[in-house]
Write a protein that binds this DNA or RNA. Sequence first.
DNA 1: AAAATGTATGTAAACGTTTACGGAACTTTT
DNA 2: AAAAGTTCCGTAAACGTTTACATACATTTT
Lengths: 335, 335
Amino acid sequence: MPQVSIKDIARMLNISVATVSRALHNRYDVKPETKQKVLELAERLNYRPSSHAIGLLKKRTHTIGLVVPEIDNQFFSEIINGLENVAYQQGYNVMIFQSQNIYEREVKIIDQLIGARVDGIAISIGSSTLDFKHLNMLKDLDIPLAMFDRANDQVYGHKIINDNFEGGYKAGEFLIKSGRKRIAHIAGPSTLKLTRLRMQGFKAALRDAQMELRPEYLVHTTFRMEDSHQTALDLLHLPEPPDAIFAVSDYVALGVLKAARELNLHVPNDLALIGFTNLAVGPLLEPPLTTISQQSYEMGEETARILLENIESPDKDFKLQTRIFKPELVIRNSV
Amino acid sequence: MPQVSIKDIARMLNISVATVSRALHNRYDVKPETKQKVLELAERLNYRPSSHAIGLLKKRTHTIGLVVPEIDNQFFSEIINGLENVAYQQGYNVMIFQSQNIYEREVKIIDQLIGARVDGIAISIGSSTLDFKHLNMLKDLDIPLAMFDRANDQVYGHKIINDNFEGGYKAGEFLIKSGRKRIAHIAGPSTLKLTRLRMQGFKAALRDAQMELRPEYLVHTTFRMEDSHQTALDLLHLPEPPDAIFAVSDYVALGVLKAARELNLHVPNDLALIGFTNLAVGPLLEPPLTTISQQSYEMGEETARILLENIESPDKDFKLQTRIFKPELVIRNSV
DNA sequence: AAAATGTATGTAAACGTTTACGGAACTTTT
DNA sequence: AAAAGTTCCGTAAACGTTTACATACATTTT
């Protein structure tokens, strides 16, 4: 016997659907005897209310949509955890989607979330996204939007981000203080603002120390380890290779570490290395990775809080919020 | 202007909803002029069809539910990727949920998925789940179920698993061949069948080599690194500590590695270590981790394939499938 | 000119649920 | 005994969409 509806139960007991509904909701105005019969039958037939029917009837779905570039990245999965926990505590469900940094997928996901009538959307924008119509139309549709980690100024929505400039500055500063002279930076996709800010902060640190950045010491890569590995190899094969590298993320730093090992370079003696993110595996690497920490779990929590506050606010003109997390230097042994 | 429906568009253009619906679906029997007007207005108002309305009307939702114990675990996130890719290719959506190994959450998630009328469910059962009513009722409801990695014999559903006995055997065998004498095993939660099988395989390898397993060398832990770290410390503090450890998973091995480093034990000289899973970080550790590989991505793909085949099969009595992946020894430097 | 065909649109039911409203059958109050 | 109040339940509309069927008008065929 496949899924039953309230109608089936009503028919079987020779009562109306209204009574069944009332019985299931334990309303006062239904005879205990009837209530009993309904509950028993519902239990026996494994009745579960159709969320579609309910979603159609009520305006609210108590669901928020979450879009991340990729799920197999600890940074994002920790954000998911933080966000989910807060959402669950407030009785909301979370629908998780990954864009794989593919623009078309991102657009499709947003369309789906609108179709699913979610109460709000949290997103970390994919690196290939250059057009933001799909996100800005959410304002017209009265769907609150929160951007975490990867936000864009052209988009109307809350922002939960890091002070990436400061993080970049701290990374550069630390490498300089440790006495390195030939400092390189492996930056992320240039489309992302966080990439540009980390780079700018890094450059500012060099400038403040009256050091110049050689053009060949600034290269771009994606956040995938395979790419950064190749990029690092290229960098280390320069006629005059760097003696320190600031990697735009820990994942990228992993690629550098692999390259250094292949070239028999000792870290930190031959090459100092600093990452960004503070992944859980960092301390377990050899050497343990020095990095700039991002509080991923807390960012997820804060994203949920702001988004839910917006959703539950009766105020139509809930004003946009920006929350900036301060990055911290985590000193281990790779510098 | 909030979300518009087909009714709103019909009212605005003074035509019926049927015509609007036909226009949006590009049916043959609607005047090009009308079609044009409808499409333009729909575009301008950012119309997106309500998935609730459609889900209610049609029996099929083209959605499959995916339940994993935890998302911030590369093994599972790779499975998610494999499963999602196959599902997308066949025009299905995936709703992802994590149980956090909490039984109550798992039950709630299943209830929700039934309510959402998903076409099928893929699950890796949580370690605290001892009662399977919530899963077995899916059979009555005609909802196909596929269990990956963590399956249970009491549950009616497809199984996509590893030959964990063989994996355990291979791990034990390799440690024995490398000349270790005091071999310990850090097993997972004893509720999980995969834990028991890996343990049994490991024991069988010892038996076949006429070696005995000291009781104090067999301990249990969870898959969280913090727990395994403490367990490893206890093990290494024994009066006669082991000279080799087979960890039930790479995550657990990470905990062991951390403990070994704290105690200044050199791996593999003082302690040989072998894991299970073959996580992407394995080769980047120092020393690179020897492990038993599970083909997570492929398991995800296979899970989707079997589940979708079941869903799309007109045959009501689609027979249960079991797919067993063969684990492979991946030799690096930790043994 | 009648009949047949084609074209474009409308009507209405269905999916599953909630809920305002109404009413029947009692019971209690006057 | 009439009035008023309870208690329990049914009716029907609404949410957004699709689709079988009906219909109106225009055009073509006989």
